[in-house]
Design a protein around this nucleic acid. Structure first.
Lengths: 209, 209
DNA sequence: ACCTGAACACCGTTCAAGT
DNA sequence: ACCTGAACACCGTTCAAGT
């Protein structure tokens, strides 16, 4: 709002426009096919122009991850139970990745450490510590949940989920039985993993009967 | 052993040599910098020669994943407790990834469904079913473990593990406390995650006192 | 059969130059 | 300040040709 922009030729390409276009392209065609030149074309600009808004391609990838996280994660409510807070965080992360499937592979290699994500992390740790977890245990717990969510997304980000049911024949009876109810979906895998993790976390807590 | 190789010029580049060189280069420089041309140079051969042994770069990446898994995973002992079998499998996967850090990012996008990996999966499912898990639950369990191991490896495959201790100041007291004992390592994160998962799995089993 | 070389359509990024 | 165009050093892959 209010930036006067009558200097050059196209005038006024913002970093935010660049990032939004990058996320859109990644979601449409996949990150691996996202190139500086293609992104520039999409923005009706020369490729070199982008370097005024981001450092380089690495920086663009980091920024995409930060963008998705900023859009998805909210500070945890300080007055809720730790189970609620942790599963809520997992769900936010899950929805963010589901909304931006093209960005998922970037979560494999890049990490976004921003003031905002650090503040959210601190919020989670605070709730967990108040619930009785030691600070370091709480940090491990958050890493475990985040790693599980990202890990399950990545596992289904590749090719279409391999339906090895046909290959099975009679050699793989238990696998065949397991797949009889249809292919295992990302959602069901994620729900199972988080349920198991949460149940496991409970056992780490000192008894409070 | 025994293949006569006196036909062309260099004579006798095998697929296995190609794969070994690819894994070595990936571990040395990272997958993202692994190129057909570089790999060919390493093997003292023209880039196009590689296409006689692999379909294309995609195929090479799949083959690297298969190579690492074949090297790391063994069929589970049929006569061991399910806890032993599952944690053993997780450890094999962990060691394989630790031995080939350059290949780790590939596990994010590619999946290796070979007769061998399917047989190992069936072995795991068999043990779990005998232990009282429903086939589909067993499959979810294996996916949860594999996703956790890969997820934790990926989380630390990126940049040097972010040491946000200094950024913390006084705004992030619980995080600062959590990091007081030094940075959280891949090993400790993995151990915590697997311990929590295993504890969670126990609660899914019908009581057998 | 196995390997080569030139060629095509791309990349990310630097640098000097334009307005 | 912001944007451009040419240039450099790369890519993966096709294709026709060599032995």
């Amino acid at each position: 709002m209010g930036r006067s922009r009558v200097q050059g030729k196209h005038a006024g390409l913002t970093r935010d426009q660049v990032l939004r276009a990058a996320v859109r392209l990644a979601d449409r065609d996949g990150v691996e096919s996202l190139s500086m030149r293609k992104l520039a074309r999409e923005l009706d600009v020369e490729a070199m122009t982008l370097y005024h808004h981001i450092q380089n391609k690495h920086g663009l990838e980091d920024a995409i991850v930060e963008y998705v996280l900023a859009e998805s994660l909210t500070p945890p409510p300080a007055s809720a139970g730790w189970q609620e807070v942790v599963t809520g965080h997992a769900q936010e992360l899950h929805r963010g990745l589901a909304k931006h499937p093209g960005a998922v592979p970037l979560f494999a290699t890049r990490t976004a450490v921003t003031p905002r994500t650090l503040a959210i992390l601190e919020g989670l740790l605070h709730v967990l510590r108040d619930a009785g977890f030691a600070p370091r245990t709480a940090l491990h717990l958050v890493y475990a949940v985040a790693g599980a969510v990202v890990g399950q997304h990545l596992a289904s980000a590749g090719e279409p989920p391999p339906p090895p049911a046909d290959l099975a024949g009679d050699d793989l009876p238990v696998l065949t039985a397991a797949l009889a109810g249809g292919p295992v979906t990302l959602e069901s895998r994620l729900e199972f993993t988080l349920t198991a993790l949460m149940a496991g976390f409970e056992t780490l807590l000192p008894r409070t009967p």
